[in-house]
Design a protein around this nucleic acid. Structure first.
Lengths: 342, 342
DNA sequence: TTGTAAGCGTTATCAG
DNA sequence: CTGATAACGCTTACAA
């Protein structure tokens, strides 16, 4: 794998490296004849500039670091798709790292990405992350970063999320409109940004329709926690029992569905189920599950765009607020028909 | 983000850069006193060696390139997990690229990875890829590469796959043992390596049990093709109709399941369904689906280990044959109980 | 024990 | 229009 360098070309053509370099980048101060010669030779020898040398020179790597809780998750893998699409279009590569929902691993990943000289960072926080001082420090040094999905309000950087509030509001309202009155809400750890927003949407929808907010109907599950049956059973043991479940994530929706099946509870006859999700197989489970679909790809794309703007035009102040993308409520009827609302 | 360099340390301590360099790497020829001084200062200033400079010097990047058909797929995202775990343990980073099941994009991804100076390549071929000359060329130049899952027999490099033959054999035999006689097989494009192996396992199991191999029961679906209902309907239209479906992938299993549901066919009363899959929600769909589970993580780990061995000890001939990892047949009964066979 | 200098591949500056 | 040289951050002969 001995690659050909600019030096080899220079030697072969009896030119200096600087001439070759200029010819290759089409500099106006090189004679057409020389240019042609160099170009042709380079082409023939399949010359490729060494990106490492370029990085060293320019002090940038054209690489974006992406840190997500986990790859094996539909939301994140789709978001990464969006990120990659934009990145490659704009000449960047992407290094993906996982925090595995662990604060220390997140900090290490960030640290590694930085020391690997990524030009910027796209982050979705681990569910454990409360303290963001490691990111604050980086931001204080003007290091370009964009948060997406799981964001930290205290960090003054661009943030891209789904409109979790609206999504939760619409879902809850949908349940109310279809006659549900006691809606249980199962969510992820309370301190994660999206949890708060979804909870608020749920509360406000209840309030709008004159229903009480009952804390005993709300549960927070750890993300590593897989056993949903006890929680669901306990909720169903209340009197009166809930007539609907609103779950705040993929896994929760599926876990809840499984628990209900094990308990012999029919969906949607006995209880309705609606969940945030990005599982493409959701439609298979119809008519059981109404879904709030997040624009994962678009979130990734937008986040990548923001980050590259930040990198390439540091002076040009980008908005640092939260940008929210609409979700879609997909309602499945027993007939298999589908209704979509933005 | 002005990072501190070895030069800064040298200047601050009135030493030469070489002394600092040696001190930092604990060279024996540096006085303990100087070492301590340098170490402490470096520590205090949070000095981190510039990996780009190191790469340029050493002509290696400590980065592995991974090219997969797509990330948003349970098998691949799990395999990537395995790859990352090993890579990070051994001091490598991972750049992930997607071919999107497209030959040209695969070639471009490989090309880009190489020109980005990855130290080696982990590849799972796109379903379109028939011609592997771009990889052959690379291999001829001694470029380290390992194939996994979708491999090319003609390439003389290490290959890691699930034992697709055994998995298909066991699945088919399971169907036969539970009384099925006309087993339809729905698979992906015929030229993909895993298709061949799975088909062979299917055939041999039929033969072992004295059942005829009926070509009209075998279908190949394009990977982009989503409409399974027509295919399933047509198969069911035969007389006698199939009493079981054996599907060769995740998407096919789920697509088949959906098609059967739409057609009002009950699983497993009317037809049994068994499929290769890596969807973690499969158990939700129980008791409908028996699965052949692939050791995705282990495949990734093993592939990464092979590759790093290849990179670090090029002379030490690694085996270039196919290494097959066992699959697990997971049978779900209507009661929710689960039987596992290796 | 420490310093000097060359080199990894490229580009920018300054001379011719 | 072209060439020599320095520089990016680091390591490593070779000197001292």
């Amino acid at each position: 794998m001995e690659a050909i360098t600019i030096k080899d070309i220079a030697r072969a053509l009896n030119l200096s490296t600087s001439t070759v370099s200029r010819a290759l980048r089409g500099s106006y101060e090189i004679s057409p004849e020389t240019k042609r010669l160099v170009m042709e030779y380079a082409e023939r020898m399949e010359y490729r500039p060494n990106p490492i040398a370029l990085s060293l020179k320019a002090n940038r790597s054209k690489v974006l670091g992406v840190v997500v809780p986990q790859i094996a998750n539909h939301f994140f893998s789709q978001a990464i798709n969006g990120i990659e699409a934009i990145a490659y279009n704009r000449g960047y590569h992407v290094i993906i790292m996982q925090s595995h929902e662990n604060y220390e691993r997140e900090a290490i990943a960030v640290q590694q990405a930085v020391s690997r000289k990524v030009d910027g960072l796209l982050l979705s926080l681990s569910s454990q992350t409360v303290d963001v001082s490691h990111l604050q420090t980086l931001h204080d040094k003007q290091f370009p970063m964009v948060l997406f999905d799981r964001v930290a309000p205290s960090l003054n950087v661009p943030k891209i999320t789904a409109d979790n509030y609206e999504g939760a509001f619409a879902a809850t309202e949908h349940l109310i409109r279809t006659g549900r009155r006691r809606i249980a809400h199962i969510s992820i750890p309370a301190h994660v940004s999206i949890t708060q927003e979804r909870l608020a949407g749920y509360r406000d929808a209840l309030q709008k329709h004159g229903l009480p907010y009952d804390e005993t109907l709300v549960r927070h599950m750890g993300l590593g926690q897989h056993e949903m049956a006890p929680v669901v059973r306990e909720l169903l043991g209340q009197s009166p029992p809930p007539d609907a479940f609103f779950t705040a994530s993929d896994r929760l929706a599926l876990g809840c569905m499984e628990a209900l099946r094990l308990l012999g509870v029919r969906i949607p006859e006995q209880v309705a189920l609606v969940g945030f999700t990005n599982v493409t197989v959701a439609h298979l489970l119809a008519p059981a599950l109404t879904t709030i679909e997040q624009p994962a790809i678009e979130i990734g794309q937008l986040a990548a765009e923001r980050l590259i703007d930040l990198i390439e035009r540091p002076q040009h102040k980008t908005t640092t607020g939260v940008q929210k993308l609409p979700t879609r409520l997909v309602v499945r009827a027993s007939t298999g028909s589908v209704t979509v609302a933005e």
